[in-house]
Design a protein around this nucleic acid. Sequence first.
DNA 1: CACAAATATTCCTGATAGGGAATAATACCA
DNA 2: TGGTATTATTCCCTATCAGGAATATTTGTG
Lengths: 78, 78
Amino acid sequence: MVSTKIILIGNINSAKKAGEIVSRYRKMQELTQVELAGLAQTGVRFISELENGKGTVQFDKVMHILDLLGIEVVAKER
Amino acid sequence: MVSTKIILIGNINSAKKAGEIVSRYRKMQELTQVELAGLAQTGVRFISELENGKGTVQFDKVMHILDLLGIEVVAKER
DNA sequence: CACAAATATTCCTGATAGGGAATAATACCA
DNA sequence: TGGTATTATTCCCTATCAGGAATATTTGTG
């Protein structure tokens, strides 16, 4: 094995952080909220609220969105 | 800077994974669910459901539990 | 600036999360 | 195996999430 580049995006310690990342990566991929909602089989309102940091969103829904955007989530010891 | 050891725990792509990690790290720190719930100002039932993989748990609550257990969550490109 | 596209917010509604507390089921040891 | 601690599940309840759709607001361009 030669070497593999890992592209870190940042820490996620809240829905606010997750929302910022979702917003940024959605735009990078030139998707509208409506399109992303369609891909995720979810409501547009959910995407909007998530991107705006709503903390009570459901965990698995968020993880699914991140996955759709090609974002991997890793746990490590602090 | 000399070198810093990063201890990876694993990927989190669902509440199921998050729950497994919470369960393992809670036990490593010799905490009962009741104690962890106390620390997190949450109900014991929530901890139990989280550890058992309930996908609809609230995002921020989960992140808070992970943080309490000394677990950091990082996003990276897949 | 004007207009169009995108996003945010509101209203209405059914479904359910989560708390507390009680109980049932498991796990753990002597 | 019996007894205890721990965890899972149930019930009751209030609060609110998430969807759809309409509307308001913001953003991006010519």
